[in-house]
Design a protein around this nucleic acid. Structure first.
Length: 207
DNA sequence: CGAAGGATTCTCT
DNA sequence: GAGAATCCTTCGT
């Protein structure tokens, strides 16, 4: 990369116009950028999961269930779907055509900009890789909140930027949805091969 | 209006 | 490895 410019180049809105499973794969290596008053924090996306509502029991929009919460998933692709889980916030990239409730969950990123800011936001993290190696962790590190719900991901202050080309990509079963029947086995989790900034602390610790 | 559950994370044993 | 924390949404009465 050219280097001296700290700013990132957002993707075009047309980038998101592809099948959800393909988008989940294409997002690997891209950069998730969040600009705040405190500064800019950004990380390379290294782990994603696809959620395809109509036939995916693990998705909030399973069987096309439409609620105030999942509303944005029924809209066009490329918007942020933020969701509060327990005490944490998760972020998804809406995918699929209009009226198709599909999305890609961002599970982990590798910090590239604003590491000091991330450390400040996550006092508990002892290692660099603990800053963003989980869906709830990365949102806190980057400063993503429910205020970003429905935000278009090709515009400041929250967007996907062009990044690197991953050396290799691995696919496998998703995590944390073991109460979702057979949907658990779908290989809809994608990650950059060999990258240390990957989630998966408990079970599902496969190579 | 009240009750149950969840795409998680942290801490202690 | 197991269990609690803790906030919002969804569903039932």
């Amino acid at each position: 990369m050219e280097g001296r410019n700290m700013e990132f180049e957002p993707v075009e809105s047309s980038f998101f116009l592809m099948p959800t499973l393909q988008l989940a794969e294409e997002l690997l290596g891209k950069i998730l950028v969040k600009e705040t008053a405190e500064g800019t924090a950004a990380g390379i996306i290294v782990e994603t999961e696809a959620y395809i509502g109509p036939g995916d029991r693990a998705a909030h929009s399973f069987n096309n269930r439409r609620t105030a919460r999942t509303e944005v998933m029924f809209g066009p692709a490329g918007y942020a779907y933020t969701y509060v889980m327990h005490t944490h916030c998760l972020v998804n990239v809406v995918s699929g055509e209009k009226d198709a409730p599909e999305a890609v969950l961002i599970r982990a990123v590798e910090p590239v900009t604003g590491k000091e800011l991330m450390k400040k936001r996550r006092p508990g993290a002892k290692r660099n890789q603990d800053l963003t190696n989980g869906p709830g962790k990365l949102t806190k590190a980057l400063g993503i909140t429910m205020a970003d719900y429905g935000h278009p991901l090709w515009e400041s202050p929250l967007y996907i930027a062009e990044g690197i080309r991953p050396h290799g990509i691995s696919a496998g079963p998703r995590i944390g949805i073991d109460n979702s029947g057979e949907a658990v086995e779908y290989p809809w989790r994608f990650r950059v091969s060999g990258n240390p900034y990957i989630s998966g602390t408990k079970k599902n610790n496969q190579s």
